[in-house]
Design a protein around this nucleic acid. Structure first.
Lengths: 344, 344
DNA sequence: CTGAAAGCGCTTACAG
DNA sequence: CTGAAAGCGCTTACAG
């Protein structure tokens, strides 16, 4: 009978205490590394734990102590390598703190996000790090207040009143525009896709502002498909206006990779005949030909920062809300060159 | 005082029951959707839950019921898009089952894997899906037996006695070799990297067997760096033997992407002057130029399968161990061409 | 430094 | 269909 086995195999703190000839309270102190316990006693208890194969029961501890050592992480999706790197950063930091991450994806759907958020509360997470789904209403945060659940926003934000870790998207856009302008480009397009959210807006506005600041036309914005495989086929969209661009800045590297391929298919030579800049600087940027010039947003570092923000808040819930906006840096590789006569 | 707020804000099942004028047991039944409760009563309880903002306390439930609705997932890393896709598949399936995933990475280190595994047991996961770290000793599984913890191996396996979900790597290798051979290639290299584990061995042996079956030399195996950015620079390794290969099959797409770039740097034209086949068929394969011919292993589907295996076992612990090895398919794109006179 | 007692929020038999 | 009681495995004061 497996269920019997299970029952029998559960060794509890009381078993340990008895074996070590101490009370349960003392054994509990040893586990939590309290300095109140004598080293001889401690050693005896630890030996007993080992001999019995004792496994701490976090669930039981949490019930009494109101801390689960668990943090929820909600991302829109996992397919974009960018989010995978972000997640890796979060996981590392949370793990180092001796805690564990409960992962869920929202699919960028607010209803799913609500569901997932509730599920996490049911599981008693100590806090959650989330990248708000596009369209998350600000009212969402009023509800959060009542939950008394520490939250940190990552990459995207919907409220000033809550911790946030992200990157200086607008600054990155400016660097990209400046780089292209310094190469003589004036007709610069911006390729976007996906849902609208704060990071989207900051990039678009960053692009516009940077273009305007140089007296360039900021309205050459094109929308490409969301699905990776369909992006190359959308490259022609760049050339449907009378005054064709000589360069494009991409909303992210997924688009940049796709357009780089699509431009190639159109007979253009990226970095020579046409210039292209990506955004995020994912690992693939180095491995594509021509190598992709891209604005680095260091997702792993952002993830670590977000985790740190949450950990700090758990340590001191009264901390005022913090925003950390990480610097962004243009990683120049090979996908840009000086202007040439307009494309086909 | 936030801690006071916290205390006050905790509404329990008893609060709900009182408000609805029923006993706690009854309230518990409606939560668990028992059919034993009358619909009028049920409605009253549900209304009370809504009005009070009740949140189910999974932790408390687990303590009594011995089920945490939680599954652990351990992967070597998250940076390889392949694992991200696998994870996405697992997460979806687990989520649909109303459970939640606790994520951790092992870094392919057995000590870390041990740590993480213990942490998961402490958190009382109902089971774990893991991709065994390279070097995991078979003895590992003897310990597992005592834990009475349902386990499923994914992608890699160390024991026949435990559920496993993976892909037919050897079959994939055979298809790759056959494809190249049908184009007239005879000197085919195999590019590998990373730690040795079952999936590694199956690919290498699959390659060897397929080559041998055709009377071709199976020993042209080269090791490239593990770090993505350094792979292109290793392409020259292909040509250091006297009899230079005319094609290469890659252990995974990360290598294929890197070598595709490196070959290009060497002045070769992939798909014409030199042929190349990847393994895994990640999204980038479609977006690279030339498009990458790759053996599709459908990581997302494998992830879902692994989750299903675990769910089935939770439902029926007495099930005999199962192995599901998913078919693999060569996705022909543009990176292979007929043999040509040997490379430089 | 150690022990006995109460309690965290549920579920589980067991009666009614 | 509903209620009263016990208990899951810990931690937390509170005495000693």
């Amino acid at each position: 009978m497996p269920s019997e086995d299970r029952k029998k195999s559960r060794v509890t703190l009381l078993d340990v205490a008895q074996r070590a000839n101490v009370s349960r309270a003392t054994a509990s102190l040893v586990i939590r590394k309290s300095p109140l316990v004598g080293s001889e006693t401690r050693a005896r208890v630890e030996a007993a734990m080992r001999e019995l194969g004792y496994v701490y029961n976090m669930g039981a501890a949490r019930l009494r102590a109101e801390r689960s050592h668990t943090v929820g992480v909600i991302v829109p999706n996992l397919m974009n390598p960018f989010f995978a790197e972000l997640l890796a950063g979060i996981e590392s930091a949370i793990d180092s703190a001796g805690m564990v991450v409960i992962l869920a994806k929202s699919g960028d759907l607010v209803e799913r996000q609500d569901m997932v958020m509730r599920r996490m509360r049911e599981h008693g997470v100590d806090g959650v790090i989330f990248c708000p789904a596009a369209g998350t209403a600000p009212e969402f945060l009023e509800r959060v207040d009542e939950w008394n659940l520490p939250l940190v926003q990552v990459l995207r934000h919907i409220s000033e009143g809550i911790d946030y870790a992200g990157a200086d998207y607008a600054g990155g856009m400016r660097q990209a525009v400046d780089h292209l302008a310094s190469l003589g480009h004036e007709r610069i397009a911006f390729a976007v896709h996906g849902p609208v959210h704060s990071a989207y807006l900051e990039r678009v506005e960053g692009f516009r502002d940077a273009m305007l600041a140089r007296g360039l036309d900021p309205e050459r914005i094109i929308r490409v498909p969301y699905q990776t495989a369909r992006i190359p086929g959308a490259a022609h969209l760049l050339f449907e206006t009378p005054e064709k661009p000589t360069a494009v800045i991409c909303f992210n590297d997924v688009i940049a990779l796709g357009l780089s391929a699509g431009l190639h298919d159109l007979g253009l030579k990226v970095g020579e005949t046409f210039s292209l800049i990506g955004f995020d600087d994912v690992a693939e940027a180095e491995v594509i030909r021509p190598r992709l010039t891209s604005v680095s947003t260091a997702p792993e570092a952002i993830g670590e920062t977000a985790a740190r923000l949450l950990l700090d808040r758990l340590a001191d819930p009264l901390l005022p809300p913090r925003r950390v906006v990480m610097e962004t840096r243009l990683h120049v590789r090979q996908s840009c060159g000086p202007v040439r006569p307009p494309a086909p």
